[in-house]
Write a protein that binds this DNA or RNA. Structure first.
Lengths: 395, 395
DNA sequence: TTGAAAGCGCTAACAT
DNA sequence: ATGTTAGCGCTTTCAA
């Protein structure tokens, strides 16, 4: 010790302004030491109060909290991390930007975010994290290099866990994270042999919803426009649709797009050529549904009178198109919030910046949640959400 | 020193496995100490090599680098931050989510990200940061509470600087950051009295571009659909358009939307009622332009033959609409990358996770950039980008 | 229940 | 040019 330590109760408030840490002032950030001095207790005690540890005399607790308020003390993340070996941060990893394949300027990584879907996830995550004072570290992971970086970042403790959003079926990252023992929660079901918590939509059910709606409308000559083959969600949507139609004794003509507007247009053109009298179309995402509408109209079909069209996702494009698209909505924001819950459940004690448990008052009132237990022991939790049909003008 | 130091070349690899840090193995993360032992030097020397400090004997440097590779050493962020007082992170703060006003579930904060514009910015930032091994911490800031949290996070050293994306004119956050001395770079010009680095588009020039294109096409009865009054960018676009038309001796009928599709439709309807024979429309963003197209078509106008339409932003909606929208593009990704450059210029030594300067080889080859000097001393730098007319089918 | 003391892994003076 | 030595601010045994 250098500055007047050991002065005990004698070392009054004057000491606060001593040394390099002018507590509470703009000059220097107050430390535990400053608070301890101001409260007339030891650093250890202050630490206990700040971290909400029991076994602290109520009177002293009061005094410390006053001192904390007076000095404007806020825990130093780095120092805390150094000893606890936890960063108090979580990584939000997004795959499927397409940057890997192209790398070009135009086919730029940012494209992901052009898809409102990712935006909704990000929003849901930020919102779910906010009450805990935690902010996500954003990372893209498309190339092998990216993945190595993500893994390294996490294993090094840059973040205590990861929220992973990927649509590709054969993404190696989930396996890598699981193998490395990094706490992670996926948006979408992980590969069969990868034991990771995840949330997902009942995609088949969504497809079935669309089918039943079309059938109920009296549509009899149905077609479906599927998405990329390597996106499981897309295949399930289509399968759910086809199964439901088959169950009703119908048949479905199948086309394929690539989740883009052009893809939808192209597929629709083909479908229309094959079967000019079709009266119902289900596309595995909204953008393709929109493309289908464009082509249908171009061919003089009225929507929904001649042909009814249903999309999937309820992206912003759905409501912004004319006719406004009937679609299957996935509660993306809720799903994202649930991911956060799952991750924070596993990684106990992720508390962000504020981190003054005793002061901020407990663990933030979580919402009821979609009725599902917390992960039992170490077995991966899976929370499945129900799709919802949003009926607008196109069907 | 405790373990056989000073054994020189004699202290071979055996030492690596010593102590609690079984270097390179899954068990424990190797520390500087481990590397030092492996290389037969002191921690200080290893630190120097790792941080690329000169004054290190080439031979020793080699040895250390080998040891680093052998042990799989990676610097501990927390420890480094604790002493350097730098986090090596940057915050990406996004405003304008609208969560403040509504707070509701549907008008959810995530909405921002539904707008592809923000997505492009985020993508550009992530991309610009990546070469430096830095990842952005994502934060929303709409409410006063949010702003306090952002400020606190930054002043506490959660991040060394901020990239701020806000469209609102009277956002208090820039001022708060400037006042607090937090290094920050804005997307869009800050309030007059706030001395902060920023990038922006020459919006007026963009409006003028649209005007000249319409004029050159022979359009004579022009209308403009402006956006929200509190978004300076929107007003400048309109002003640029009107000025250019006026300069050519023309007049412009003015309508107003709110940057939404509905707003565009509504404004267009009004405009059309006022002046049924108009032949050219400029909307301050793509979504409104799209709305205008919808209404025009609804009223039997052919685009671009009867009425030519130009939007602004070149959002994904522009290319996805039919007719494909002619629009004014802002190089958002480049602008975002420039923000990163500006911030990293100011905050010297932001280096992410990897941080092994000596090993990774220099400061990453930055691209030529939009020809603009680095901030001179402490005066705020402003990098303005040129808009570009993207001619498609609507005009 | 509280305090004293020992570090967490790293950088930065200060010696050498 | 390299090594020694202090801590950075915090949590956490271990005593009292």
């Amino acid at each position: 010790m250098d500055t007047g330590r050991g002065t005990g109760t004698d070392g009054r408030a004057g000491a606060v302004a001593r040394g390099r840490g002018r507590a509470g002032e703009a000059g220097g950030v107050p430390t535990l030491e400053d608070v301890a001095r101001a409260a007339g207790v030891s650093r250890a005690t202050v630490s206990r109060v700040v971290n909400g540890v029991r076994n602290v005399d109520p009177a002293i607790q009061q005094a410390v909290q006053r001192a904390v308020a007076a000095t404007g003390y806020v825990p130093n993340r780095a120092a805390r991390s150094l000893v606890t070996r936890r960063s108090g941060a979580v990584a939000l990893v997004v795959c499927g930007t397409g940057s890997a394949a192209t790398g070009g300027r135009d086919e730029f990584a940012a494209r992901v975010f052009q898809d409102p879907f990712f935006g909704r996830v990000v929003g849901g995550v930020v919102r779910g994290l906010r009450p805990r004072g935690v902010h996500p570290v954003l990372m893209f992971a498309d190339t092998g290099e990216d993945r190595a970086e993500v893994l390294s970042y996490l294993t090094r403790g840059g973040a205590d866990g990861a929220l992973l959003v990927t649509t590709r079926a054969r993404d190696p990252l989930p396996g890598m994270l699981a193998a490395a023992g990094v706490p992670a929660v996926l948006f979408a079901r992980p590969p069969a042999d990868v034991p990771l918590d995840h949330v997902d939509l009942r995609h088949r059910e969504g497809g079935a919803l669309a089918a039943r709606h079309l059938l109920a409308r009296g549509c009899a000559r149905l077609a479906v426009i599927g998405g990329p083959a390597d996106i499981p969600a897309s295949r399930e949507r289509v399968a759910g649709f086809c199964d439901a139609v088959a169950a009703a004794g119908g048949r479905v003509r199948a086309g394929t797009g690539d989740f883009t507007l052009d893809g939808g247009e192209h597929a629709m053109r083909l479908l229309l050529a094959e079967q000019p009298d079709l009266d119902g179309v289900f596309a595995a995402n909204d953008l393709m549904a929109q493309g289908a509408c464009l082509v249908l109209r171009e061919h003089g079909r009225r929507i929904p009178d001649d042909v009814a069209v249903i999309g999937f996702d309820d992206s912003s494009a759905a409501a912004a198109s004319r006719p406004r698209l009937t679609t299957v909505r996935q509660p993306v924001e809720d799903m994202a919030a649930e991911m956060v819950r799952l991750l924070l459940d596993r990684v106990t004690g992720i508390t962000g910046v504020t981190g003054i448990t005793g002061v901020t008052g407990a663990a933030a009132g979580a919402d009821p949640g979609p009725a599902k237990g917390a992960p039992t022991g170490t077995e991966p939790a899976a929370v499945l959400f129900a799709p919802e049909l949003v009926v607008r003008d196109s069907a």
